Simulated scan of single mutants.
Amino acid sequence: MDVVTLGESMVLFTPDTEGPLRYVSGFHKTVGGAESNLAIALTRLGHQTGWISRLGDDEFGLFVRNFIRGEGVDTSNVSFDEEAPTAVFFKEKLTGGDPKIYYYRKLSAASRLSPDDLDEDYLKQASYLHVTGITPALSKTCKQTVLEAIRMAKANGLKVVFDPNLRLKLWSEQEAAKTLMEIAAVSDIVLPGIDEGELMTGYKEEKQIAAALLDNGSKLVVIKLGAEGAYYATSSESDYVKGYKVDRIIDTVGAGDGFAAGFLSGQLRGWSLANSVKLGNRIGAYALTVAGDVEGYPYLHQVDKEQRKKEILR
């Protein structure tokens, strides 16, 4: 196993037409969730991944499990809850802007995740544990689960990758900043967006954000800068990596998870930090070109063909 991740995935309803949801009569049903997005993207790039979660013991829960399992992700550590439902969320398409997101996830099955849902023998098979800032915002037991998973990972030599993935609809800025910095302090790699970094550290400039997170305990910080690419820093090196131009952006959801997957794919292959970030930028750019959370993620042969022309894959 290369990467194990944990968190909530939901049924995603995407409208067939643009405009306010009150006027929409048709939807396309699929699956969305930051952690399973990453797992699926990595699987398409040729890696073995596992996803830990809880789903409602309902038709939506079966749909989510089957969809993610069908993408090649190991779901053997997903449990079904008879007392809580699978969460759902809706996108609202607006002309010329990012979609609005409406979540219906309160008291969902995944919000009942607890440390008892973790199997240390399963976790220690992996090279990386991936967590996000979404899961600890769902409930106290979810936060406890994330921290316990990190403890288990550290005890078994896994590297911990943390994507803050800020969701202010779930908690206050003050609580979010405190908890995200707490998790970042025990994570080897932190992957914030520029706005997330500002909330966490109080700094607006990427170099200051990275320095603050390194001082906080992280060993590597990669800051996503949108169309400009990314900035990475360790205690001994730092640099900017340019982004990829996307002529027509269809949907921004899932791009950050794609970036994280591309970056981790490069690291799993033993690439340099710069080339890993380049691949992260590329996978994130793919995600922008297709509607949906995971539909735009490429398979390795697609990236390989394009990247070799630019002498990035080596």
Results as ranks from 00 to 15, higher is better:
residue 63 F to Q: 04
residue 43 T to M: 08
residue 38 L to G: 04
residue 45 L to M: 05
residue 59 E to Y: 04
residue 47 H to I: 08
residue 77 N to L: 14
residue 70 G to S: 10
residue 44 R to N: 14
residue 57 D to Q: 15
residue 63 F to N: 02
residue 58 D to Y: 11
residue 74 D to I: 14
residue 32 G to A: 14
residue 31 V to S: 07
residue 66 N to W: 04
residue 57 D to M: 15
residue 34 A to K: 04
residue 51 W to T: 11
residue 48 Q to V: 09
residue 55 L to T: 03
residue 42 L to G: 11
residue 29 K to D: 13
residue 29 K to M: 06
residue 63 F to P: 07
residue 73 V to P: 10
residue 37 N to K: 08
residue 68 I to C: 10
residue 67 F to G: 12
residue 32 G to R: 07
residue 51 W to G: 09
residue 71 E to G: 06
residue 55 L to Y: 01
residue 74 D to M: 04
residue 54 R to C: 10
residue 58 D to Q: 13
residue 77 N to I: 11
residue 31 V to C: 06
residue 45 L to D: 08
residue 41 A to R: 07
residue 67 F to A: 10
residue 40 I to L: 09
residue 56 G to Y: 02
residue 56 G to D: 07
residue 71 E to D: 09
residue 74 D to H: 07
residue 78 V to F: 02
residue 39 A to P: 15
residue 55 L to K: 10
residue 56 G to T: 08
residue 72 G to N: 10
residue 45 L to V: 08
residue 63 F to I: 11
residue 59 E to C: 01
residue 75 T to M: 14
residue 51 W to K: 10
residue 49 T to V: 08
residue 77 N to M: 15
residue 52 I to Y: 03
residue 78 V to Q: 04
residue 57 D to Y: 03
residue 55 L to H: 02
residue 68 I to M: 09
residue 50 G to H: 09
residue 42 L to T: 05
residue 52 I to N: 01
residue 50 G to K: 06
residue 39 A to M: 06
residue 50 G to Y: 01
residue 53 S to K: 03
residue 71 E to Y: 02
residue 51 W to V: 00
residue 38 L to T: 10
residue 41 A to M: 04
residue 34 A to E: 05
residue 67 F to E: 15
residue 33 G to H: 07
residue 39 A to S: 15
residue 69 R to K: 15
residue 36 S to L: 09
residue 73 V to L: 09
residue 75 T to E: 02
residue 57 D to H: 13
residue 52 I to V: 15
residue 73 V to D: 04
residue 56 G to E: 11
residue 47 H to E: 00
residue 70 G to Y: 08
residue 63 F to K: 05
residue 30 T to P: 12
residue 52 I to A: 04
residue 36 S to Q: 13
residue 54 R to A: 05
residue 50 G to L: 04
residue 77 N to D: 01
residue 30 T to M: 06
residue 43 T to S: 14
residue 29 K to L: 15
residue 57 D to W: 12
residue 45 L to A: 06
residue 44 R to C: 14
residue 64 V to R: 03
residue 67 F to Q: 11
residue 43 T to F: 01
residue 50 G to A: 05
residue 40 I to A: 00
residue 54 R to V: 15
residue 40 I to T: 02
residue 66 N to M: 14
residue 41 A to K: 08
residue 54 R to P: 15
residue 59 E to H: 02
residue 41 A to Y: 09
residue 43 T to H: 11
residue 32 G to Y: 03
residue 73 V to M: 08
residue 40 I to P: 00
residue 64 V to D: 11
residue 74 D to E: 10
residue 42 L to Q: 05
residue 44 R to I: 13
residue 70 G to V: 00
residue 77 N to R: 11
residue 48 Q to P: 10
residue 75 T to N: 00
residue 66 N to P: 06
residue 62 L to P: 08
residue 34 A to V: 15
residue 72 G to R: 04
residue 54 R to N: 13
